[in-house]
Amino acid sequence: MTIDQIWVASTLILAPFIGSFIGLLTLRLPADRPWVMSRSACDTCKRPLGIVDLLPVISFLILRGRCRNCHAAIPLRYLLLEVGCLLIALWSAIIYPGAMVLVTALLGWSLLLIATIDAEHLWLPDKLTLPLGALGVLFTIGVGQAPLWTPLLGAIVGYGVLASVAWLYKSLRGFEGMGGGDPRLMGAIGAWVGWQGVPSVLVWSCVAGLSFAIAQAIVHRRFSSRQPLPFGTFLAIGGWLTWLWGPLHTLLAWNSF
């Protein structure tokens, strides 16, 4: 087995366990419940979970989505997040070789966690976005071998663009149109994709957000401009696609040949 294959295999094995952990965080962080050194238990009967209950994907299938003790339904979100993390790992392996597989998967898993929390609670906690930006700086310098100013400039531009948009919106409309966590998430993503990738992140995010709004309007047959949207979720999508495919102008230039 080659080194590249070891990186791929390790990332794929790790993926569903990360998904299970993300499922735990998406429930406990918004509820301000302890998650460090806290043993998992059934939410219904409170029985501590054993190894048989905690095997990602496999346990859900063997137990048929039910608790072994009280037979209460296990939230489907755990299975979806575990499979989602596995798909992110597979996608990473298709795009990048070697250690970059794990680096890319770590970014994707982090964005999935942030996107899920924002979609469900309209909340972007600094305890997630700020470490994501710090990791972006470290990986860009260490793995990408870029100078320090590259990720820092990306973070500054990313934060500055959305902070300016939020300020302008409030000045014109008289009320907040964007949460304070959105510019910080954009800054964290900018540390990964660089300042050149910031416009592409915004384009992808707007496309995702507009698609969601249109779909929601079709389903509910109404649309309100004041209805809050989880823009952080769309930023996560834009950041992921930009990291995978690069800035749109380079993608378009490559496809023109």
Rank of each mutant, 00 (worst) to 15 (best):
M1D: 13
M1G: 12
T2N: 15
I3Y: 03
D4P: 05
I6P: 01
W7N: 05
W7Y: 09
S10V: 10
L14G: 01
L14S: 00
F17M: 01
S20P: 02
F21K: 02
T26A: 09
T26N: 08
T26K: 04
P30W: 06
P30D: 09
D32Y: 14
R33W: 11
R33E: 13
W35I: 08
W35N: 05
V36R: 10
V36S: 09
D43V: 05
T44G: 06
K46I: 14
R47K: 12
L54Y: 14
L55M: 14
L55T: 10
F60T: 04
L61G: 03
L63K: 07
R64I: 08
G65M: 01
G65K: 00
R66H: 02
R66Y: 02
N69Q: 08
H71D: 08
R77T: 15
L79S: 00
L80P: 04
L80A: 12
E82L: 01
C85R: 00
I88Q: 05
I88M: 10
I88P: 03
A89F: 03
W91I: 11
A93V: 04
A93L: 07
I94W: 13
I94P: 04
I95K: 13
Y96M: 10
A99C: 05
A99T: 00
L102C: 11
L106Q: 09
L106F: 15
W109T: 04
L111H: 05
L113V: 07
A119W: 06
E120I: 12
L124K: 02
D126N: 08
L128S: 07
L128I: 08
L128Q: 06
L132Q: 07
G133R: 00
L135T: 05
G136M: 14
G136W: 05
F139Y: 03
T140V: 14
T140W: 07
I141P: 13
G142H: 11
G142V: 14
G144P: 02
Q145T: 11
P151D: 04
P151W: 01
L152G: 09
A155H: 02
G160A: 07
A166F: 08
S171L: 04
G174P: 07
F175C: 15
F175P: 09
E176D: 12
E176N: 06
M178Q: 09
G187C: 08
G194V: 05
Q196E: 12
G197R: 02
P199N: 04
P199I: 01
L202P: 13
W204T: 03
G209W: 05
L210C: 11
I214P: 15
Q216M: 14
V219H: 12
V219D: 06
R221H: 12
F223T: 15
F223N: 15
P230L: 13
A236I: 14
I237E: 10
T242H: 07
W243R: 13
L244W: 06
W245K: 06
G246C: 01
G246H: 00
G246Q: 00
P247Q: 10
L248H: 10
L252R: 09
